[in-house]
Simulated assay, not measured.
Amino acid sequence: MPSITSHTVRPPAVAGRFYPADPERLRADITALIDAVGPVSEPLAGAYIVPHAGYRYSGPVAAEVYARLAAHRGRVKRVVLVGPSHQYPLRGHAAAPYAAWRTPLGEVAAAPTAVVGSSRLPHEAEHSLEVQLPFLQVALGEDVEVTPVACGMSQTPDTARIIAALLEEAGDDAVLLCSTDLSHYHDQGTAARIDEATAEAIRSLRPREIAAQHACGVFALRGTVAWADATGRRPRQLALATSADTAGTPERVVGYPAFAVERPAIAE
């Protein structure tokens, strides 16, 4: 089903809560997070897995991904964003019918897609894709385009095929970002055990072993892992942490992953 075309600009829904609403502070905070990772020199991966909580919690983990994207500024022209629908009970997949997404740093152009149909409902109040946009603006510049797609209840092979089609449509200068957090509201020790098991399922390309209750973006995540397996890629862990490791308390934490999904190096 073709995407619904629109001239609507989607306003920020969580500025001032998940990240600063003041543009100068927002840019400074993101720059500091990326700079803290340090210069990264490695090939651009075809996809990355990145968390989506408030920046004070998941920002240091997300910055592991964005420091790598920043190293390829000017090369990446489009980013396909897949993630969950927290606020709206979605079955299947829905693109966002907006011409652009506004953040405190300006507008990000949205490239339409003919791969899946569009619906405003999963995107109006959703934070999982929105919080990636200011990071993208700082890491890749103002010319990057995005194709945001919410992934609801779906079969893993279907999501993997949709991801493949979205990337084929986007072209050679595109990258996939899969937005997900991991376990929610366990104590630090329990969360560490659960998240390590999930990370092992990701690293080992076993999407069926990623439990729905252990990743809020589970359908997008399973599809991304299945797509990686089908295309000869392998997820490489960049970071795995919880809110207790960054800014929270150890009694009730949320887990955050960062992975690069890349083709294995060919031995000389």
Score class of each variant (00 low, 15 high):
Thr5Asp: 11
Thr8Glu: 11
Thr8Leu: 10
Arg10Met: 09
Pro12Cys: 06
Pro12Glu: 04
Ala13Asn: 11
Ala15Gly: 01
Gly16Lys: 11
Arg17Tyr: 14
Ala21Leu: 10
Ala21Pro: 13
Pro23Tyr: 02
Arg25Leu: 15
Arg27Gln: 14
Ala28Phe: 07
Ile34Val: 11
Ser41Ala: 13
Ser41Glu: 12
Pro43Thr: 08
Pro43Met: 09
Pro43Cys: 11
Ala45Gly: 07
Ala45Thr: 06
Gly46Asn: 03
Val50Leu: 02
Val50His: 03
Gly54Pro: 04
Arg56Phe: 08
Tyr57Phe: 15
Tyr57Gly: 01
Ala63Asp: 06
Val65Ile: 14
Tyr66Cys: 02
Ala67Glu: 04
Arg68Ile: 09
Leu69Asn: 03
Ala71Gly: 08
Arg73Ile: 13
Arg78Tyr: 05
Val82Arg: 00
Pro84Glu: 03
Pro84Asp: 00
Ser85Gln: 06
Tyr88Arg: 05
Arg91Asp: 14
Gly92Gln: 02
Ala94Ser: 12
Ala94Glu: 01
Ala95Gly: 15
Ala96Trp: 05
Ala100Val: 08
Ala100Thr: 06
Trp101Ser: 00
Leu105Gly: 05
Leu105Thr: 07
Glu107Phe: 08
Glu107Cys: 09
Glu107Lys: 04
Ala109Glu: 10
Ala114Gly: 09
Val116Pro: 01
Ser118Thr: 15
Arg120Val: 15
Glu124Ala: 14
Glu124Trp: 08
Ala125Phe: 11
Ala125Val: 07
Val131Arg: 01
Leu133Val: 15
Leu133His: 02
Phe135Lys: 00
Phe135Gln: 00
Val138Arg: 00
Val138Leu: 04
Val138Thr: 04
Gly141Arg: 07
Val144Ser: 02
Glu145Phe: 06
Cys151Gly: 04
Gly152Ser: 09
Gly152Arg: 03
Met153Tyr: 06
Pro157Trp: 14
Asp158Pro: 03
Thr159Met: 10
Ala160Ile: 09
Ile163Asp: 00
Ala170Pro: 09
Gly171Leu: 10
Asp172Ala: 15
Asp173Arg: 12
Leu177Val: 14
Thr180Val: 05
Asp181Lys: 09
Ser183Trp: 11
His184Glu: 13
Gln188Gly: 05
Ala191Leu: 11
Ile194Gln: 03
Asp195Gly: 06
Ala197Cys: 04
Thr198Val: 15
Glu200Tyr: 08
Glu200Val: 14
Ala201Cys: 13
Leu205Asn: 02
Pro207Ala: 07
Arg208Pro: 03
Glu209Arg: 14
Gln213Leu: 06
His214Gln: 12
His214Tyr: 11
Phe219Ile: 07
Ala220Gly: 14
Thr224Arg: 02
Thr224Tyr: 01
Thr224Glu: 08
Asp229Pro: 00
Gly232Ala: 15
Arg234Tyr: 07
Pro235Gly: 01
Leu238Ser: 01
Ala239Ser: 14
Leu240Trp: 12
Ser243Lys: 01
Ala244Leu: 07
Ala247Phe: 15
Ala247Arg: 13
Thr249Trp: 08
Thr249Cys: 03
Glu251Ala: 12
Arg252Asn: 08
Arg252Tyr: 03
Val253Glu: 05
Val253Gly: 08
Val254Asp: 02
Gly255Tyr: 09
Pro257Trp: 01
Ala258Arg: 08
Phe259Gln: 12
Phe259Asn: 10
Pro264Asp: 07
Pro264Trp: 01
Pro264Ala: 09
Ile266Leu: 13
Ile266Ser: 15
Ile266Met: 10
Ala267Cys: 12
Glu268Lys: 08
